[in-house]
């Protein structure tokens, strides 16, 4: 560890030492840019039905369609350009992952830290529920909730958050119980500061590192879960075609050898998830003091 540099600069210095993680980070950033800029760079608006021609349906990669440009990754059953559909799909998938991850972080971390700080009955009740939920697979919970709440963006985010908040709550609780015993919290508690202020200004910032690690992993998980639910037909409505739905739409055509409708959106999904996980892995290795060499 270099003495003078700020913690963030040191962290970044260690991060760039792992080339795989740097490439992964670059991929994540590139995908974010592509997702945000999708309407500007996609050759076609895949949801403008007037712009689609059934003559172009299910054409292989490299086909030149009615629009006069090359469909580099082919077209789907409605004659949509897959490059455009994937870009728009990434947009929806990334959005769902970020929103679900953020809400799960806020709800889970608040619950975990409050439970650790206040203790008593609330602590045992909250942590009982959280542990109970953790022993239950998230995918099943999300599946059932998505089925019960019905289709829609809001409903799906609620289902994902309900399935994932427990991971944040457990992590925050673990970090906060460790921090709580330290002197600075005792000192703060001895002053007339309000409990809320101590929790949010003192306890929370010191619990952040493990929460950030869980957040990266859970965003990737949320994206994978959303894709899985959409693939099973329980996710987003047809008007919001995420990557999972694109893959699902192409599945029937796979048997007849038209692999590209499913395979390319799937590759986009896998690259996104693997890249986020690699970045998360590196952050975890750097934060975990036991692995620091």
């Amino acid at each position: 560890m270099s003495g003078g540099a700020s913690p963030l600069a040191t962290f970044w210095g260690n991060f760039v030492e792992n080339r795989v993680a740097v490439v992964a980070l670059a991929v994540v950033v590139a995908i974010l840019v592509l997702a945000v800029a999708a309407p500007l760079i996609a050759p076609q608006d895949p949801y403008d039905l007037a712009g689609l021609s059934l003559l172009d349906a299910r054409r292989g990669p490299g086909h030149v369609g009615a629009g006069g440009y090359v469909h580099w990754l082919g077209t789907d059953a409605q004659g949509r350009d897959l490059v455009s559909a994937i870009l728009y799909g990434l947009r929806i998938s990334v959005q769902m992952g970020l929103l679900a991850g953020m809400f799960a972080l806020i709800i889970g971390a608040s619950l975990g830290i409050t439970a650790a700080y206040l203790g008593g009955r609330l602590e045992s009740l909250v942590m009982r529920v959280v542990d109970l939920q953790l022993s239950f697979p998230a995918i099943l919970l999300a599946l059932v909730l998505a089925a019960l709440l019905g289709q829609g963006k809001g409903q799906l985010i609620a289902a994902l958050v309900a399935a994932q908040y427990a991971y944040f709550a457990r992590t925050a609780y673990g970090a906060a119980t460790a921090e709580r015993r330290k002197d600075y919290i005792e000192a703060a508690a001895a002053t007339p500061l309000s409990g809320r202020r101590i929790v949010f200004r003192h306890l929370l910032p010191n619990c952040m590192p493990p929460l950030i690690v869980v957040a990266t992993v859970q965003i990737a998980n949320a994206i994978a879960l959303e894709a899985t639910l959409s693939f099973l037909g329980l996710g987003l409505p047809v008007t919001e075609p995420s990557l999972g739905m694109l893959i699902s739409n192409g599945f029937p055509y796979m048997m007849s050898g038209r692999y590209w409708i499913s395979v390319y959106p799937g590759i986009a999904l896998v690259v996104l998830i693997v890249a986020i996980n690699l970045v998360g892995d590196q952050i975890r290795d750097q934060i975990n003091p036991r692995l620091r060499r």
């Binding site: 994978a224 099973l232 048997m255 499913s262 395979v263 896998v270 693997v274």
Partner: peptide, 22 residues
Amino acid sequence: SILGFSVPTFWVGLILILTFAV
């Protein structure tokens, strides 16, 4: 093992079908 953790199950299933069945 990182791939096994990251890649969604349903996608691996599709690729297995595409490769070994189709």
